[in-house]
């Protein structure tokens, strides 16, 4: 049973290596095995889990066949695999800073694995010790080669690091700066901690967070409207009616940049750098109170506080174009459409 499992694992490992090699050589596109929207993060972790199981199986099978793969090369190979996986498998491309973080952590992981027991550690460092001891002609040659190559490599890195570059500098952008305690819109002051969206009401017109939460679209594979919760049904009153009105305002004013799918990829989006906010991402409106959005929509990029450095937002201060009611309604629509609940406090 164990041998069978290991064989299956080994096959997965080989398939994974071949697939990745294909992606690196551009024979197989990265999207050949699709990252499915909505499941991407777990899919990535699942793939990595399969690879670990696969490599464990491969190692077992090779040992059983009398061709054990040296521990040293196992460690180096696995680390290289992770680096290549992050660069060639995951799309869109991961920024270098994050790959560097992941690469460093993976290197630590490999070290922890190969040195967890004394026996493993001895196996791992044996090839290094062999080269340093240089008891054979080949090892002697390798030692001289390292003597020459390592300084050149380090020199190359230093040169590369010191060489002036013409790339645009990296920006540490604060996407969601802290809001003020209150904001004044059209002559009225709103306390952000306590204000509420006046249109989050049930059919009787009473403020009802639970009712509105129950009528947002469902997330998952695409977004689906709940049965009997179609805002474009003229008979609807209360929340769904205001969602429709908010939607009309959105498509008259906002969708050119934020996109008709609210993912920040509107008609004009790629004229801006950075492109407009993607409301479907769980890190944007899903993390924020409605009053935060109210403040940002009202004041726009020009109203960002000092903390919002480098103020990379071209959003107009919508208070100059919309009424307070319209702003609240459009916010209502954004949450409805994305299927997210605004942040609330107990």
């Amino acid at each position: 049973m164990k041998a069978l499992l290991m064989w299956v694992g080994a096959l997965i490992g080989v398939a994974g290596i071949l697939l990745l090699a294909g992606m690196i050589l551009n024979v197989v596109p990265s999207s050949a095995v699709r990252l499915v929207e909505g499941y991407m993060p777990m899919q990535m972790l699942f793939e990595l889990t399969c690879f670990v199981a696969g490599f464990a199986g491969l190692s077992y099978v090779m040992s059983a066949m009398g061709m054990p793969f040296p521990r040293f090369w196992q460690g180096i190979g696995f680390w290289a695999f992770i680096l290549l996986y992050l660069k060639y498998r995951v799309y869109p491309p991961i920024p270098f800073s994050v790959r560097a973080m992941y690469g460093t952590v993976s290197l630590v992981a490999v070290f922890m694995w190969v040195s967890a027991s004394e026996e493993d550690w001895k196996k791992f460092k044996q090839p290094i010790m062999n080269v340093l001891d240089a008891q054979t002609g080949m090892n002697k040659l390798l030692r001289y080669a390292y003597l020459v190559l390592l300084p050149i490599l380090i020199g190359g890195f230093s040169y590369n690091a010191m060489m002036p570059k013409s790339e645009e500098p990296i920006e540490l952008r604060t996407v969601h700066p802290a809001p003020p305690a209150s904001t004044k819109v059209h002559g009225k002051t709103y306390t952000l901690q306590t204000s509420q969206n006046p249109y989050r009401v049930n059919q009787e017109g009473k403020y009802d967070q639970e009712y509105t939460n129950a009528n947002i679209v469902e997330q998952g594979m695409g977004r689906l409207m709940k049965p009997n919760a179609n805002p474009w049904d003229d008979k609807n009153q209360g929340y769904l009616k205001y969602v429709r009105e908010g939607g009309e305002i959105f498509f008259q004013n906002c969708h050119f940049c934020h996109g008709d799918n609210l993912n920040g990829r509107g008609l004009h989006a790629f004229a801006f750098n950075p492109i407009p906010a993607n409301f479907t991402d769980p890190g944007t409106i899903a993390q924020l109170q409605e009053t935060f959005i109210f403040w940002r929509v009202s004041k726009g990029g020009i109203g960002l506080p000092n903390e919002g450095f480098p103020w990379a937002s071209v959003m107009p201060p919508w208070e100059q174009h919309l009424t307070v009611d319209e702003i609240w309604k459009v916010i209502l629509f954004e949450y409805w459409h994305t299927g997210y609940y605004p942040r609330t406090w107990d």
Partner: peptide, 15 residues
């Protein structure tokens, strides 16, 4: 970098 930002297609990475 701004180039990476463009390649990623937005401020948030979908994965």
């Amino acid at each position: 970098t701004p180039a990476e930002l463009k390649a990623m297609g937005g401020q948030q990475h979908p994965v």
